[in-house]
Nucleic acid binder design. Structure first.
Lengths: 147, 147
DNA sequence: CCCCTTCTTTGGAATAGTTCTAATTATCGC
DNA sequence: GCGATAATTAGAACTATTCCAAAGAAGGGG
C-alpha cells in the first residue's frame, strides 16, 4: 500500500506512524488504537481501559493514558474535552465539530464544510495567530422518526 | 484589551438578578461579581479568591466557588473551559468566541458576527437540538507592544 | 546469541481542581 | 426578637490525571 496524503485510520498505519516519530509499536499501543477505531463513541481513558482489558488483562490504567497520549502526539487520535469532564478520544482526523448531548452525556461528530472553518479563522483579529479551532455544540439529540 | 465590549453589567444589577431567582444579595456575592467586572482577564476560581480576599479576609475558597456557580446560574457570568484546565470566569454575556494563548495561558474574547453563529447552528443536522455553541481558538498572540 | 542501552510498562503515590458535608452564622418575615 | 430558611465556612472527600521509581521488553553490535 503506497502512502496516502491523508492517513487512513487503520491499525496497519500505526506502526509506520509510530516509527516516523521514533517510537516502537507495542501490543498495548496497537490494542488501544484498535479499540478506538472499533467503537467510535468518544470513550474516556477509563472506558478504553475496560475495553482493552479483556485483550490484555495485565495492562494498567497508566499505560492506557500513556498510549492515548502517544497516539495524540502522533496525530492519529484527537483528544476532546467538554466542560471539565474526563477527556474523550476520537480517531476521526478530519476537521469536525462535536455535539455534546446534555441528557445522555454522549458526544457526536458533526461534519462542517471546510468553508466555514475558513470563515471562522478569518474573523480572528490581527495579532492573533490561531493554529486550531474547536467547535462544540451543546443540546439534546432528539430521536428522529427516520432511521 | 480585546474587543467584545458589552452592556456593562453593573454591580447594582446583581441584587435584582439574584432576587429574580429567589436568592439573596450577600457581601461575598457582590465582591466576587465586582472583581470579575473590574479585571476581565478570565480569572480562575483561585485567582478570584486572592482578589476578593483583601476586601473580605474571612472568605473561603468554597464560598468563591459557590458564588461563581450562583452567578453562572443567574446568567451574569459565563464559565469558560479550555482543555481540562481550571474553569475561568467571564462577565461578558454577549455571544463571543475565546482565544487561548498557548504561550502565556491567557484567554481573550473574540467578537464574532452574529451571522456566523447563525451559519454554525445551521450546519447542525436534523435531530440535534443545539442550544449553545462554544468556539475556542488556540494559538499565539503575536506581540503588539500595546497592552 | 549475549550484552548494553534505550524504550516501555507497571502499580502506587501524588497532585490539581472541585465538590461535599456538617456545623456555624446571617438574614428575612412576622 | 424569634423561628425558619439561606449562606458561609473549614476541612474532608473525590475524580481525573500525572509522576515516580522499578521491573520488563526489544533491538543492535560484537
Amino acid at each position: 500500500m503506497s502512502s496516502a496524503t491523508t492517513t487512513a485510520p487503520h491499525p496497519a498505519g500505526l506502526a509506520r506512524k509510530l516509527a516516523d516519530s521514533g517510537l516502537r509499536s507495542t501490543p498495548q499501543r496497537e490494542v488501544v488504537y484498535e479499540v478506538l477505531l472499533k467503537r467510535r463513541d468518544h470513550p474516556t481513558a477509563d472506558e478504553v481501559f475496560t475495553r482493552v482489558k479483556p485483550e490484555l488483562p495485565s495492562i494498567s490504567l497508566a499505560t492506557v493514558y500513556n498510549c492515548l497520549e502517544t497516539l495524540v502526539q502522533c496525530d492519529l487520535v484527537r483528544a476532546v474535552n467538554f466542560e471539565r469532564g474526563p477527556t474523550r478520544y476520537c480517531p476521526n482526523l478530519i476537521p469536525h465539530a462535536h455535539f455534546h448531548d446534555e441528557v445522555t452525556g454522549q458526544t457526536h461528530d458533526i461534519d462542517l464544510p471546510p468553508a466555514l472553518f475558513a470563515k471562522l479563522k478569518a474573523v480572528v483579529p490581527a495579532g492573533f495567530d490561531a493554529n486550531a479551532v474547536e467547535i462544540t455544540f451543546r443540546g439534546k439529540f432528539i430521536a428522529s422518526s427516520v432511521n
